[in-house]
């Protein structure tokens, strides 16, 4: 009974939702690439295996860098690193977002300070702040991802808070409260599960932001440059004057990948959001 219900539920969400389907296909493709890297890499991404600045060819489908490294290998590795930092940021943002959002809605004296801090964080210019933090403190890529996640909780928290508030005013919650069910239980059981889908959707939006922020940081030379991400690839390309030397593949490929990955997530999030709104 429950098996077919979930299937029907999933089918319901996917029905006529081309955005969602397209997004899932795109993300699955990239996940596939990551899975492949566990068993096969065309060559060591750091090693010079070919001619310098070679355009895409049969032996090097994505061309080579200024010192002959295989861009395809770099790209495959970059997929994993880019995706993982995005996910770290999203998870952090979701955890804090849900925590603070629900608390703000249910615990009276936490509402004002939480929302005020949310306002403050939202107003801070993210990239300049990250640049300063990264330049002074030189954190690892993962730490950067965590910090970005911490800076993104306000957006999610706001939405969770308003959803929680509207759930809170539902009659069945009032009844539960009055019949003595402890607040914390309500918060966790009913509200939490109801807000989870929305939290998920908004966290996906924060993945996109995280990927772009990290790419920008890498591009400016921050973060660990020997740790290959798509952003660092573009940075190295720029540093080696790739555009002036006509090595368009070195720049276009990682850039397009960022766009494609982010668009995939954007489609998923947009598809989910339309579904929640129509429910």
């Amino acid at each position: 009974m429950s098996e077919s219900a979930t299937f029907r539920g999933l089918n319901n969400i996917l029905y006529k939702n081309s955005f969602l389907k397209a997004g899932i296909i795109i993300i699955s493709f990239f996940i596939g690439v990551i899975l492949v890297t566990f068993v096969y890499l065309p060559s060591n991404p750091y090693a010079s295996v070919g001619p310098d600045f070679a355009p895409p060819s049969y032996s090097f489908p994505f061309g080579t860098t200024n010192i002959g490294q295989n861009i395809l290998s770099q790209w495959m590795v970059g997929t994993g690193s880019t995706l993982s930092v995005g996910l770290i940021a999203a998870v952090v943002s979701m955890v804090f977002g849900v925590m603070f959002g629900i608390s703000a809605a249910f615990v009276k004296h936490m509402d004002e300070p939480l929302m005020r801090s949310a306002d403050v964080i939202l107003t801070l210019p993210t990239l300049p702040l990250m640049i300063v933090l990264a330049a002074f403190l030189k954190p690892t890529e993962d730490l950067i991802a965590i910090i970005i996640g911490i800076l993104s909780w306000p957006a999610t928290a706001r939405v969770i808070r308003s959803t929680s508030l509207s759930i809170k005013s539902q009659p069945y919650i009032e009844v539960a409260l009055m019949s003595g069910v402890p607040k914390r239980a309500i918060m966790f059981k009913d509200v939490f599960f109801h807000t989870l889908p929305i939290a998920l959707t908004y966290s996906i939006f924060s993945i996109i932001g995280a990927i772009l922020t990290i790419a920008s940081l890498n591009f400016l030379g921050l973060g660990n440059l020997s740790y290959i991400t798509w952003g660092s690839m573009i940075a190295l390309a720029n540093d080696s004057s790739a555009i002036y030397l006509g090595a368009w593949w070195w720049i276009i490929i990682p850039g397009l990948s960022i766009i494609l990955l982010s668009t995939g997530f954007a489609f998923i999030a947009y598809g989910l959001e339309t579904k929640w709104r129509s429910i």
Partner: peptide, 22 residues
């Protein structure tokens, strides 16, 4: 428009330089 939102500014800058300047 949703897709355009995901393009990194610096990357598009590089592409534009490549196309229009070089």
């Amino acid at each position: 428009f949703y897709a355009l939102n995901t393009i990194p500014t610096f990357w598009l800058g590089l592409i534009f330089i490549l196309i229009f300047a070089i």
